[in-house]
Computed example of a mutant assay.
Amino acid sequence: MVNVKLFEETLNEEKIYQGKFINLVKQKVKLPDGKESTREIVRHPGAVAILAFIDEDTIIMVEQFRKPLDRILLEIPAGKLEKGEDIEKCGRRELEEETGYIAKDFTYLGKIATTPGFTDEYIYFYKAEDLHKGKIGGDEDEFINVKKISLNKVKEMIKSGEIIDGKTLAVFMLM
């Protein structure tokens, strides 16, 4: 079996769209065989997601309406990194803003590339334990219901297709 060169050289990049927190770029690339092609890439600052334990059998989840899917999803708490923000500080901030909880213990679990076919976004995962009440906050345009759900119920909801959020599914592989 022969190993094929896989790297694509970027020849140029054109900004197509600059949004509030995502940008779309179009790259001209040189393929491994020498031919040229284009790639459309969504630039994203990254995010942090938190598996927050109330006790050993119960986690905190958030329910939000997600416009791209036009439906309400049940997810683990998460939020986008601000420019230059420390990853752990972002996770702690998002946990408190979305759920009203602060964690004494905050353990890094790993990261995923969410959809590397079109975005450079990474989501970093933390496990939060020894929780106590903080202040719920959040963005002006963010409406969230906080839920406490047993791990067994979450696993049932994943199997039945009730929970479909990718980061929520992924965190259980990192535990």
Score class of each variant (00 low, 15 high):
D141L: 13
Y17W: 03
K83V: 08
K5C: 05
V48P: 02
G166F: 10
F7M: 11
K155F: 13
N152C: 01
E40T: 08
P68L: 10
D165A: 09
M173L: 14
V171C: 07
H44Q: 03
K89M: 10
Q64R: 15
K127Y: 03
G100F: 08
T115L: 14
K35Q: 13
I102T: 11
K67I: 07
P116K: 11
N145P: 00
G34W: 05
T107Q: 13
P45C: 12
E142R: 09
I41Q: 06
I144H: 04
Q27K: 15
T119Q: 09
A170Y: 14
Q18K: 12
V4K: 14
F53L: 12
G110Q: 12
N23L: 00
D33W: 07
V62I: 15
K159M: 12
H132P: 02
E13F: 00
E156A: 12
P68E: 07
E8F: 00
K159V: 10
P45T: 09
L81A: 04
C90M: 04
R66A: 10
E140N: 12
A78L: 01
T99H: 02
E96V: 08
I102D: 02
D57Q: 13
K167R: 08
A49Q: 04
G138W: 03
N3R: 10
V42A: 06
K153R: 13
R43G: 01
D57K: 14
M157W: 09
E63L: 11
K135L: 07
T168W: 05
L31M: 15
I136E: 14
G46E: 04
E96R: 03
G46D: 07
V171R: 03
F106H: 13
A52R: 01
K127P: 08
K83W: 04
L6C: 05
D86T: 08
K135I: 10
Y126R: 06
K147S: 02
R92Q: 14
E88L: 02
A128L: 08
G84I: 01
S160H: 08
L95Y: 05
G161N: 13
E56C: 01
E88Y: 00
I50Q: 05
K20L: 10
Y17N: 06
S150R: 12
I163E: 03
F125G: 05
M1S: 14
F7G: 06
F53W: 05
I144R: 06
I163L: 03
E88C: 03
I123S: 07
D130S: 15
E82P: 00
I102W: 02
I87A: 02
K111R: 15
